[in-house]
């Protein structure tokens, strides 16, 4: 951890104002940033503590949805009765992530901004274009069991580690941001970016931007949804593959579908074509498999992670099948 200054923001405006100085970072839960600072991967010169700003509420929106405060803790969000009832896949996704202690600390906004768990990103003795642009990608040709099969570039094959974000992607959440130039809304699909030739940039946020809330639209797929996480141990591990699935059924036919994958790409992965392939089809394994194949049509494996392609297909089929069978289940 390098030397840094510490200041507590007393309002969102104050926070955004202070963030003008280069090399400063907001800290709220701290669970990812302090970890990265200790590993010498993040080196902010100043921390602005936003953890006490009144952005921790979960409120109804005019459109019948829910506004999740950026500073609401993951645990409080997951256990919120409205979230559990109306957005069970979100509750389930949050509870599939990290540990109870970390969920008590980590905020929703911070979760959006957590960085990859790629081994090379964390080890400053190794090359990583995300950490040190131009140094090369260690994972390509290296140890890449946990890496991307979709949307990667020849500069970076890291994956986004969040569970919560996968559900938010499936739900078409909107990220509310306050920046130096005022407030704006970012649709979830546009919030995270693919690595391309700038893997050091994870999101479309601009310097000084403060995430203030995440808005959930009214439609929560509460009747038919699930979150399925597959990992190397039963708990407290990042996803090899995860699936957020939501269906709207008309009898046995799919009327609307949402499908987002975690652990496979630099961002939560959604594919409109795969979802379109489900609509009007019977809610049955064959349709689910066909949609999975659409979603995975461009999947590309590396030395150690090619298994993820087949695993993802099987996971999609399983998650959609569970979603179709399920009625408003909210507990993991």
């Amino acid at each position: 951890m390098r030397s840094f200054t510490y200041a507590r923001a007393d309002s969102a405006a104050d926070a955004v104002g202070r963030a003008g100085a280069s090399g400063t970072a907001f800290v709220a839960g701290g669970t990812n940033l302090l970890d990265l600072m200790k590993a010498d991967v993040a080196r902010p010169g100043g921390l602005i503590d936003i953890s006490r700003l009144p952005l921790d509420r979960i409120e109804e929106t005019a459109g019948g949805g829910l506004r999740l405060g950026a500073l609401a803790r993951n645990a409080d969000t997951a256990y919120d009765e409205r979230v559990q009832t109306r957005y069970p896949m979100l509750s389930k996704a949050i509870l599939a992530g990290a540990s109870a202690q970390l969920r008590n600390m980590a905020t929703n906004g911070g979760n959006l901004l957590q960085r990859t768990r790629c081994y090379y990103f964390y080890d400053t003795a190794t090359p990583c274009n995300k950490r040190e642009p131009g140094s090369g990608c260690g994972a390509i040709g290296g140890v890449n069991r946990i890496h991307a099969i979709l949307g990667a570039s020849d500069q970076c094959i890291a994956v986004h580690p969040s569970d919560l974000c996968v559900a938010l992607a499936a739900l078409d959440a909107v990220v509310q941001v306050r920046g130096p130039d005022g407030e704006r809304s970012i649709p979830f699909a546009e919030f995270h970016r693919l690595p391309g030739d700038r893997p050091e940039i994870d999101t479309t946020l601009r310097p000084g931007d403060l995430v203030t809330s995440i808005d959930l639209p009214a439609k929560g797929f509460a009747e038919h949804s699930t979150y399925l996480k597959i990992r190397d141990r039963a708990s407290y591990a990042f996803a090899l593959v995860s699936v957020a699935a939501g269906l709207e059924l008309d009898g046995g036919t799919v009327r609307d579908a949402r499908l987002a994958l975690g652990g496979v790409a630099h961002k939560p992965w959604r594919d409109p074509e795969a979802e379109a392939a489900l609509i009007g089809k019977p809610a049955a394994p064959d349709s689910f498999r066909a949609a999975a194949r659409v979603l995975l049509r461009d999947a590309k494996g590396h030395e150690h992670n090619s298994f993820k392609i087949e695993l993802a297909e099987r996971a999609i089929v399983r998650a959609l099948s569970e979603a179709a069978d399920r009625k408003g289940a909210s507990h993991p």
């Binding site: 081994y119 090379y120 964390y122 260690g138 290296g142 141990r233 039963a234 708990s235 990042f238």
Partner: peptide, 21 residues
């Protein structure tokens, strides 16, 4: 990573030991 001669998953997050579950 045999190119680097280095163990890459050198922490408790990625070197998995059993958890309670």
């Amino acid at each position: 990573d045999h190119r680097l001669g280095r163990v890459m998953n050198h922490d408790y997050a990625e070197y998995h030991v059993p958890v309670n579950a």
